[in-house]
């Protein structure tokens, strides 16, 4: 019993120490963003200030970047939910020639890193006049192989009776997917939304390559430029930028930790 207690408190101490090292950066980020530090004075020269947030929200234009990220995310989420349901349903329920081939193709897209296609993809965007527009950040990402697998797997495990009944009543296939399958697939859709949202919100290299002007820039790219611009060592401003870029997600995470973590793990646990 005694060793049990020591083990527990030892573990707790260790974890607390580690936990502090994990919490510290966020606390520092928030604290520093409000702190004006006078150079040349001893460390007593710090004072509270909102100037960095005024800079970030005003001149630096971060609200615009936030909006762009939100718009892109919303469009990508809607597209993914809609299309994954359709395609996942087709794979789960229909038999058709070439099913195996198509399945392998989907698998292939999961193994090919998209970054290696950056050159022709950019060329494509430019040719179609989509360069430097939000569409370039939405269209290629409307369908994702991982999400397709997710929906397919889930729908396969649903009993088909309701669908058969609806079909016998003369419902169209679309209606079946929309009114029968979708409501039953809510858990899978939730997982899909969580996974897609996290990946898309933080997506960096393609927004970097596909956009240029500030009017279509998203948050991560904006922050990276900001960290290399005239405020490169303006720590207060940098931390304010980092805060604005991450606090929404941090708050959402703290509210929905359970669901988010479950979403991540259920994607990994096939069994």
């Amino acid at each position: 019993m005694k060793t049990h207690f020591w083990k527990q408190s030892g573990t707790l101490t260790l974890l607390t120490a580690l936990g502090l090292s994990y919490l510290y950066p966020w606390l520092y980020m928030v604290a520093r963003s409000f702190m004006r530090h006078e150079p040349g004075m001893a460390d007593g020269g710090d004072s509270f200030t909102l100037e960095f947030y005024r800079l970030i929200i005003g001149d630096a234009g971060f609200p615009g970047f936030l909006l762009n990220s939100v718009v892109v995310l919303t469009a990508v989420l809607i597209a993914n939910v809609f299309f994954s349901l359709l395609v996942g349903y087709a794979f789960a329920r229909y038999r058709f020639p070439g099913k195996k081939v198509l399945f392998w193709l989907i698998l292939a897209t999961l193994m090919i890193p998209r970054q290696t296609l950056m050159v022709p993809l950019l060329d494509l965007m430019v040719r179609f006049g989509l360069y430097d527009s939000l569409w370039a950040l939405i269209l290629p990402f409307g369908v994702d192989g991982f999400n397709l697998f997710l929906m397919k797997q889930f729908i396969e495990n649903l009993p088909a009776d309701l669908e058969d009944a609806a079909r016998a009543d003369g419902a169209s296939e679309f209606a079946i997917v929309w009114h029968v399958v979708a409501p039953l697939s809510r858990p899978a859709i939730a997982v899909l939304i969580i996974n897609t949202a996290i990946v898309n919100w933080n997506s960096f290299i393609f927004p970097l390559i596909f956009t240029d002007t500030a009017s279509v820039r998203t948050l991560p790219v904006a922050l990276a430029y900001f960290a290399q611009g005239p405020h490169a060592t303006d720590w207060g401003a940098l931390m304010a930028g980092a805060s604005v870029s991450s606090l929404p997600l941090i708050i959402l995470f703290w509210l929905f930790q359970k669901q988010i973590i479950e979403g991540i793990t259920s994607g990994a646990l096939k069994d």
Binding site: R32, F204, P220, A224, L238, I260
Partner: peptide, 14 residues
């Protein structure tokens, strides 16, 4: 789940 750019910015300071 936070953008690695945000983390990198904080670590730049670290």
């Amino acid at each position: 789940i936070i953008s690695i750019v945000v983390t990198a910015t904080i670590f730049k300071s670290v």
